[in-house]
């Protein structure tokens, strides 16, 4: 089953998402972006589903950090936010963000389809590189 790490500071919203998605995906939930790295290392998700504003913190600090490491840089990211109109995909594509979804209009069907598509492209690439040494990968 596709493994998705959900990063969301609104616990009720997160619980609702888990209920919506648990039949189709294997899910873990983190509300603190600083705890994400630990979960990524131990659990190795196929996809990150994250809100943009995480309390006082910002998702992009985390995503920038993820780009620094071989085992996290290729994990695909889907942003689920209520401020979707304030960012453009081309501006965040360098963080491996594949899709920006609007919380206020998304439906369960569309969300599941997008997650399936984005996780599928992540799986084919990231798993095959997790065992490579960083220097080997950069050749």
């Amino acid at each position: 089953m596709i493994k998705i790490l959900l990063v969301e500071d609104d616990k009720w919203f997160a619980e609702s998402l888990v209920l919506m998605l648990k039949k189709d995906f294997e899910l873990r939930f983190c509300s603190d972006p600083e705890a994400v790295f630990g979960v990524v290392e131990s659990w190795q998700p196929d996809l990150l589903l994250a809100d943009m504003i995480l309390g006082e913190k910002n998702l992009f600090v985390l995503l920038n950090e993820m780009q620094s490491y071989a085992d996290t840089r290729n994990i695909n990211v889907v942003i689920l936010t209520s401020s979707a109109d304030s960012i453009k995909l081309r501006d965040v594509a360098r963080f491996n963000v594949k899709k920006i979804l609007d919380k206020s209009t998304i439906t369960p069907e569309i969300l599941k389809t997008v997650l399936h598509d984005c996780a599928a492209s992540s799986r084919g690439f990231s798993r095959s590189n997790l065992n490579y040494d960083d220097r080997e990968y950069q050749k």
Binding site: D10, F13, S16, S82, S83, K103
Partner: peptide, 17 residues
């Protein structure tokens, strides 16, 4: 407006439950 959106987004999401 953003503060207003957050509880509304949650309310909408809860209807799917």
């Amino acid at each position: 407006a953003h503060e207003l959106k957050s509880p509304l987004v949650l309310l909408r999401q809860l209807t799917f439950q």
